[in-house]
Every structure is written in structure tokens, then in C-alpha cells.
Amino acid sequence: MSPEASRPADVGPAARVSTPVTGRYGRPADPALWQVLVAGVPALVVFAVPGVLAVTQGRRAMRLGRPDGRVPAVIGAVIALSFIGVNLLSYVATVVLG
């Protein structure tokens, strides 16, 4: 199995969104806040979109009388929030611990 086949579908686009900033300005040991925001926010948005869509579609299904729509809504929310949380914690830990 190729490495591309084993990763989630949105990791590639998220990496392509943030790579121009990190590639152009290098990968400094202590990136400036603007570099983190310019590279990180679009990547987080790209990765969170499938979770947000799962939540909206699941809620729509529940509103239309399908209680099983709760499952994709909860899974999508957990995955999107977990990814964003892990990335934010990673940045905070890097800043705090050096």
C-alpha cells in the first residue's frame, strides 16, 4: 500500500495549503506567529471541512426524522475537533516547552 493510500483524504490538501508558506520562509526552529497563522489556519480549515459537512448533513437527517443521522454528526464533530485540538496543543506545547 502506498503512503498516499494509507492517510486520510484531506491530509494531502491540508499539507499543500500550508507548504508554500513553510517552504518559502523555511522551517525555523521558532516560527513567528504570523507564519503559524498563515500556514496553519487554511490547513485546519481544509481538514475540518469534512467534519463540518458530516455534522450539517447528520443534523439535517435528524431534522427530517432520521435519528440515525446522529452517528455521522457525532463522528464528524469528534474527528474535526480532535484534529484541531491536537494541532493547537502541539503548537502551544512547542511554544511553552521550547
Rank of each mutant, 00 (worst) to 15 (best):
M1S: 10
M1E: 11
M1A: 10
S2P: 00
S2G: 01
S2L: 03
S2R: 05
P3K: 06
E4D: 10
E4S: 08
E4H: 07
S6P: 02
P8S: 03
P8I: 05
A9D: 12
A9H: 08
D10V: 01
D10Y: 03
D10I: 05
V11Q: 10
P13H: 14
P13W: 11
A14H: 04
A15Y: 04
R16P: 07
V17L: 15
V17K: 15
S18G: 02
T19Y: 09
T19I: 12
T19R: 03
P20G: 02
V21Y: 06
V21M: 01
T22V: 04
G23K: 09
G23E: 01
Y25W: 13
G26I: 00
R27Y: 08
R27H: 09
P28T: 05
A29M: 02
A29I: 00
D30E: 15
D30V: 14
D30G: 14
P31Q: 01
P31K: 01
P31C: 00
A32V: 11
A32C: 09
A32M: 14
A32F: 11
L33Q: 03
W34I: 03
V36Q: 00
V36H: 04
V36A: 06
L37G: 07
L37Q: 07
L37H: 07
V38Q: 09
V38E: 11
A39C: 08
A39F: 11
G40I: 03
G40L: 06
V41L: 15
V41M: 13
P42Q: 07
P42A: 07
A43H: 10
L44F: 07
L44V: 07
L44Y: 05
V45G: 11
V45A: 14
F47S: 00
A48F: 09
V49H: 09
V49C: 11
P50H: 04
L53I: 04
A54D: 14
V55I: 10
V55L: 10
Q57N: 14
G58R: 13
G58Q: 13
G58L: 12
R59C: 14
R60N: 11
R60S: 14
A61E: 08
A61W: 04
R63A: 15
R63E: 13
R63Q: 11
L64Q: 01
R66W: 02
R66F: 04
P67W: 13
D68Y: 05
D68N: 01
G69N: 03
R70K: 13
R70C: 12
V71R: 03
A73S: 11
A73P: 11
A73W: 05
V74M: 14
V74N: 09
V74G: 08
V74A: 15
I75R: 05
I75V: 14
I75K: 02
A77D: 10
V78K: 00
I79A: 06
A80F: 02
A80H: 02
A80N: 02
L81W: 14
S82F: 09
F83I: 04
G85C: 10
G85F: 11
V86E: 05
V86W: 08
V86H: 01
N87C: 13
L88A: 15
L88P: 05
L89F: 13
Y91V: 00
V92D: 04
A93M: 02
A93K: 06
T94E: 04
V95P: 10
V95R: 15
V95K: 15
V95M: 14
V95E: 10
V96H: 15
V96N: 12
L97E: 12
L97T: 12
G98T: 10
G98P: 04
G98E: 10
